[in-house]
Write a protein that binds this DNA or RNA. Structure first.
Lengths: 344, 344
DNA sequence: TTGTACGCGTTATCAT
DNA sequence: ATGATAACGCGTACAA
């Protein structure tokens, strides 16, 4: 059995003061109450010598604050290991939270199981939540929000007034497709991700695709719109099906880089050369994008910054009790080889 | 202000019973004490109607258990977003912990800052720790272990008796290099990762490389041993330098797939064809490995299973109070295109 | 079968 | 400037 960690009582005993004084010295350092420097030093030394760490449970029980933020992923496709994007966000979140001395509990929602956010918040495990992949049907979030639990969404929740951080997916997708249009392509396909009933990001990217084409007076051929499932395999299959069409597209907008990698492979296997026979634009600008063959033209999404901003918003909400204003981060078209040059 | 979450007192009131009864019904369901079915139902209904969730802090304070495991990464190169491997492990950990109703706190050690493991464990934030990238110098772990805190390492800690889960990096690397030898290569280079003072995985992979060559009577040419830094860019640079040699290698063992992707790019840029001019074997078998061009021959490391096993070991240790026995997971050589065929 | 009372470690209030 | 005391919400030994 572990020798129980020292308590403030132990520190008090060693420093020959009361627990109250220990508490003052350790927390209220800048409060109105003064403590004699000698006493202060004795307490500090005692705490250090004992390796004292205040008990989280007791502190939390007393203060009614957990000092912990929850990061919850809903859609399985958004989960930690499922795609290469999420970890970058997590990294950003951790850097901000760590700096603020706030802990991070990570949890994944499992379909059919009780909403983890509710348990986390109601049980006092966390003071606030960063949520991604939530669907409108998850009204647990609404209730928590109504009750004043600070919540920040990564990605918008359709028809919700929860504060979020996101990119303008419609505009970004439009930018990607317009790049292809500007290169002279007219028959442009789209591989977007299958929305888990309604992932607004996937839907918005598709919308951006449609908007771009329509703004140039091109009618969208629905046979050119395909669904993938966030990974390479599904991208491979989508592209394979696309290239089985009698009239092949000359350009493809793929709504995520990992899927694009699978698509690239399919083209290669089929004998379609990228970018000469087929121009491809991805989405995300993952670290691998510059290194795949051919290097991937894509939309840069500031993944780590998304995490940073979300965490900052949450920290602010916890401090102020206010509701942060939603943030839309900028994307950027990164032109590399896969989109090729001006079409003859 | 949030309307405070309901307490067991509220449940008791609504069900017209005492708090004790509520506690019995909710926790001790299978205890010796019996509760009348009618009462039980009243309590359950009341809890459900109120959306009651036991307060984590109070429960933890009382039980002296946090119900939380900490996942701590030390080396920055091992951090969540830094490479594509860690998220897969995290995913495995989460799946096991979630099923056991145990929460997960994720934290990254920052050089120069106090060891997060100590604060996490001593402060009672967590009951146990899963640790990766720890260096022998971090003796906080030793002390915690000596005090009976359940700890599992992912990757071995040199000269430590902490239980770990890992793969046999020496054997795996040897297998990779022997594959190249079997294909008829003799001048084989190695790009391993720069150990953060002492990452045993990196060192072991290098050792496996040396062992393989020496077992065939080949003297290692130190000019063929290069260091990368876990990412594509460093892999690119390492390969570029390698190919600047007067006598180029015909095969390269790269100690991680992401680095291999960078190396692949460098070869392409320089005009060296893989696998015809240069055979490459990677390590990890990331999801992207089959999709890069050419598809990557590599060592499969069961990333998700590493997480699963580590979590299971931790759960067992928390339950038994025992010390789990270390686990070494199997690797496998996955032959794809990048290593080419038998050399003329 | 159910209720009463205590303590887990902290911090805040109130005396001294 | 410092110390005694109460309360946070829960679980359980004990009494009824």
């Amino acid at each position: 059995m572990p020798p129980r960690s020292p308590t403030s009582r132990d520190v008090a005993r060693l420093a020959s003061v009361s627990r109250t004084t220990v508490s003052y010295v350790l927390n209220n350092s800048d409060s109105g109450i003064a403590v004699s420097p000698a006493t202060r030093k004795r307490v500090l030394d005692a705490a250090r010598d004992l390796g004292y760490h205040p008990n989280a449970a007791a502190r939390s029980l007393r203060s009614q604050k957990a000092g912990v933020v929850g990061l919850v992923t809903y859609a399985s496709t958004m989960q930690m290991g499922a795609n290469a994007f999420m970890p970058l966000v997590l990294d950003g979140v951790m850097s901000v939270l760590g700096g603020a001395g706030v802990k991070l509990i990570v949890e994944a929602a499992i379909p059919g199981q009780p909403d983890p956010c509710v348990g986390l918040a109601r049980g006092g495990h966390v003071d606030a939540l960063i949520v991604t992949g939530a669907r409108p049907a998850d009204n647990g979030l609404r209730v928590l929000h109504a009750d004043g639990v600070p919540i920040v969404l990564w990605g918008m929740l359709a028809g919700s007034d929860l504060p979020f951080v996101d990119v303008d997916n419609v505009a970004a997708a439009r930018m990607a497709v317009e790049h292809l249009l500007d290169l002279g392509h007219e028959r442009i396909a789209c591989i977007t991700n299958a929305p888990p009933s309604n992932n607004s990001a996937a839907a918005d990217r598709l919308l951006g695709y449609r908007t771009a084409l329509e703004s140039r007076g091109i009618v969208v051929d629905e046979v050119l719109v395909r669904r993938a499932n966030y990974d390479e395999v599904s991208g491979f299959e989508a592209m394979r099906d696309l290239l089985a069409q009698t009239v092949r597209p000359t350009g493809v907008f793929v709504a995520s880089d990992e899927v694009a990698l699978g698509a690239l492979k399919a083209a290669r296997v089929i004998g379609v050369t990228v970018p000469d026979d087929l121009a491809i634009v991805g989405f995300d600008d993952l670290p691998i994008a510059p290194f795949v063959e051919p290097s991937l033209t894509t939309i840069r999404v500031p993944a780590r910054e998304i995490g940073i901003v979300a965490a900052r918003m949450i920290i602010a909400m916890m401090a102020n009790g206010s509701i942060a204003t939603s943030t839309t981060l900028a994307t950027e078209l990164i032109v590399r080889e896969s989109s090729g040059t001006l079409r003859a």
